[in-house]
């Protein structure tokens, strides 16, 4: 097994995800413990499988990041004023303060 719990915790941090049930705590501790073990085990199996790429001979091979053949020029960067759209966009926000998206204080 190449992956341990601390690696999984680090990856969860990068992914902006929590361990299952970690914010609940308390009475479900045993359940949470089990959920963490399952996650480490699953993730480990997946990463171990990916090690098959070690057998590929890629000496001198350029990476292929996109199969795009006919790239198009980007469109001009022109701001568009559409008040109706702004209203519709703001309507989607879970929390607003006036016309601003609201987040918890950061300092």
């Amino acid at each position: 097994m190449s992956i341990d719990e601390s690696t999984v915790r680090a990856v969860l941090g990068l992914a902006r995800l929590e361990l299952p049930g970690s914010s609940a705590g308390g009475p479900n501790e045993e359940e949470n413990r089990r959920a963490v073990e399952v996650m480490v085990d699953e993730f480990s199996k997946i990463v171990d499988y990916m090690a098959i790429l070690g057998e590929a001979d890629v000496e001198g091979i350029e990476p292929l990041y996109s199969p795009m053949i006919d790239p198009q020029p980007p469109r001009p960067d022109e701001p568009v004023a559409d008040p109706a759209k702004s209203e519709a966009i703001l309507k989607e926000a879970p929390e607003l303060v006036g016309r601003y998206f609201s987040v918890p204080r950061i300092f």
């Binding site: 990916m50 790429l53 590929a56 890629v58 091979i61 350029e62 292929l64 990041y65």
Partner: peptide, 11 residues
Amino acid sequence: YFRKAAQVRRL
């Protein structure tokens, strides 16, 4: 992983 996979993608 990532770069290597992109190379294998070309293969």
